[in-house]
Amino acid sequence: MNEVALALGWVGIYAPMALGAIGSTIGCGISGQASIGAMLETEGGYGRYVGLSAFPSTFVIYGIVIMFTLNREVTAANAGGLFGVGLLAGLALIYCGIWQGRTVAAAINAAKEKPEIFGLSLAPAAIVEGFGVFAFVFALVISGGIAGGAL
C-alpha cells in the first residue's frame, strides 16, 4: 500500500509536466495546421500565423515550473497531496493546450479573410490562457501546504 502511495506521489510530481507537454503538442499541432492552411490562401503575413501557432506552447512551461515546485522527497504523508495537485493541474493544462490550439486555429481561419479582426480574434485564446494561468498559480500556492517542500 505504501509503495502504491509513493508511486502516486511521483506520478503527481511529473504529471503537470507530461500533461502540459501533451496539451501544448496537440494545441500547437492544431494551430500549426491552421497557419499552414492560411499560408496557402494568403499572399503575405506568414510570420504572424506561425507566431500565433506557438501560443499553446506556454502550457508545457507552466507544467515544468509546477513539477519543480512539487519536486521533493516523496513520503506516505505527502504522496496524496502531490498526486492530487499534480494530476489536476496537469489535466487543466492539457485541456487549456488543446482548446487554445482550437481557438487559435479559428482565429487564424477568420483573420485570413478579415485581417482587421486579427487582434480581436485572439481574445478567446487569451481567455483560455487566463484559465491556464489560474491552474498554474494556484497549483504553486497550494503546493506550499504539502509536507516536505523546498528540497
Binding site: 495546421q33 491552421a34 490562401e41 482550437r102 486555429a105 481561419n109 485570413k112
Partner: peptide, 17 residues
Amino acid sequence: MSQADAYVMLISSLPNP
C-alpha cells in the same frame, strides 16, 4: 488529433465565399 480537428489545414486553406 480528434475527428473534430481532422481538417484544420484544409478548412484554413479554403477562402470563404
